[in-house]
Simulated assay, not measured.
Amino acid sequence: MKAVLCKSWGLPDTLVVEDLPDVVPGAGEVAIDVQAAGVNFPDVLIIQNKYQFKPELPFTPGSELAGVVRAVGEGVTRHKVGDRVLAFVSTGAFSQQIAAPEKAVMPMPPGLDFDTAAAVTLTYGTSHHAVVDRAALKAGETMLVLGAAGGVGLAAIEIGKALGARVIAAASTDEKLEVCRQHGADALINYTTQDLREAIKTATDGKGPDVIYDPVGGVYAEPAFRSIAWRGRYLVIGFANGEIPKLPLNLPLLKGASLVGVFWGEYARREPKANAAAMQQLMGWMAEGKIKPHISGRYALAETARALEDMAARKVTGKVVIQPQR
């Protein structure tokens, strides 16, 4: 079988595709023929040794996947050969086969295709944990989503609307904002052509958003926080801009506001029952048509480096997936 390998820390062009032995599941493991693997911004950081999680070299990047069970190890009872499943793992998804712990594997909902199944776990898991658990967004409240056309941003929009909130989407181009509108955004801000603070003021009638969802960081963080509503919650998701902002701590004091950290991977590890319940709610919303991942690109395994380069250059709208069997 073929797999992408990161043999030394570096940019995507340092990755290689090599032939490896077929996987054999150990005790408690499920071997899967990977049909699709989701690409996420942390994948860009992990191969450069710039992420919270630091695997040992060499390793295969990629954390979310969907496929078909090819074999099961001793003690596995919840899955059998031929089952269509999705999984979230620490590494290894950018390959034609993977052996995943049984607890990391779940059945694919009926009627779901592999590409969509591979685009759900991290983005929607992160956004559900952020919006529902950490921010406790309520019906009737307003949420501002920065970087709204990315995978987690679109997921946040859909989750906000499923909860009955009003959602303002901010992105860098009108084309990206149109995708946000199609996924339910009530108001749009182009922060390349508009003054962010003035646009937020106009969109909220001067009140400010109750929740700000920020996976971007950089120069937008401070003006956004200065615009937050009284008792607002500012969700720190990540730093796709590449710059970790420094906020004056008098700002949360003046607004009675909260800075709230969001680290879904650690949440899923520490609170597996709560995470499983969240995934069940997401699957229910998907069955009802309230959420649907937007997949803007599909790449063969040999094109993995290009997929990551497009992600790093912020050319991606919604999600892109690797199709390892191509």
Rank of each mutant, 00 (worst) to 15 (best):
133 D>V: 15
188 L>F: 12
216 V>R: 10
263 F>K: 13
196 L>E: 07
33 D>I: 04
241 N>C: 11
282 L>R: 03
168 I>A: 06
196 L>M: 09
219 V>T: 14
185 A>N: 08
269 R>W: 11
122 L>F: 07
286 M>T: 08
268 A>W: 08
206 G>P: 01
60 T>Q: 11
196 L>Y: 04
33 D>L: 13
321 V>F: 03
14 T>N: 15
241 N>F: 08
306 R>W: 12
190 N>E: 06
4 V>I: 15
113 D>E: 14
152 V>T: 15
146 L>H: 13
150 G>A: 11
35 Q>C: 13
111 G>A: 06
250 N>T: 13
23 V>N: 00
73 G>T: 06
254 L>G: 02
168 I>T: 05
265 G>V: 10
277 A>P: 00
247 L>H: 06
211 V>S: 04
326 R>G: 14
118 A>H: 03
117 A>N: 00
64 E>C: 00
236 V>H: 11
252 P>A: 13
15 L>M: 07
21 P>D: 10
225 F>N: 04
291 I>D: 07
41 F>I: 03
79 H>G: 06
130 A>C: 04
22 D>Y: 00
191 Y>A: 06
108 M>K: 07
21 P>I: 02
318 G>V: 05
18 E>H: 00
247 L>Q: 08
202 T>I: 06
76 V>A: 06
280 Q>A: 15
314 R>T: 07
283 M>H: 15
162 A>K: 02
186 D>H: 10
304 T>V: 11
132 V>W: 12
70 R>I: 15
155 A>L: 10
293 P>Y: 01
32 I>M: 03
1 M>L: 12
314 R>E: 11
311 M>Y: 05
239 F>A: 07
191 Y>C: 03
149 A>G: 03
114 F>L: 07
147 G>V: 04
98 I>R: 04
12 P>V: 01
304 T>I: 05
42 P>F: 01
139 A>D: 05
48 Q>S: 07
5 L>D: 08
121 T>V: 12
76 V>R: 02
87 A>E: 06
304 T>L: 02
40 N>I: 11
215 P>A: 05
298 R>S: 10
234 Y>D: 04
89 V>M: 03
46 I>G: 02
272 P>S: 11
140 G>P: 00
106 M>C: 12
6 C>P: 01
291 I>L: 14
317 T>D: 12
221 A>C: 08
78 R>H: 12
11 L>W: 12
73 G>L: 03
219 V>G: 12
123 T>I: 10
320 V>W: 02
59 F>C: 00
43 D>Y: 01
208 G>Q: 00
238 G>M: 08
216 V>T: 10
232 G>F: 11
210 D>M: 02
75 G>T: 07
130 A>G: 09
106 M>F: 13
93 A>D: 11
194 Q>K: 07
32 I>C: 01
280 Q>F: 05
270 R>Q: 15
214 D>H: 01
253 L>Y: 14
187 A>I: 02
134 R>Q: 15
262 V>W: 13
105 V>R: 09
165 A>H: 05
76 V>E: 11
270 R>V: 13
273 K>L: 15
19 D>T: 14
294 H>E: 14
136 A>E: 14
240 A>H: 01
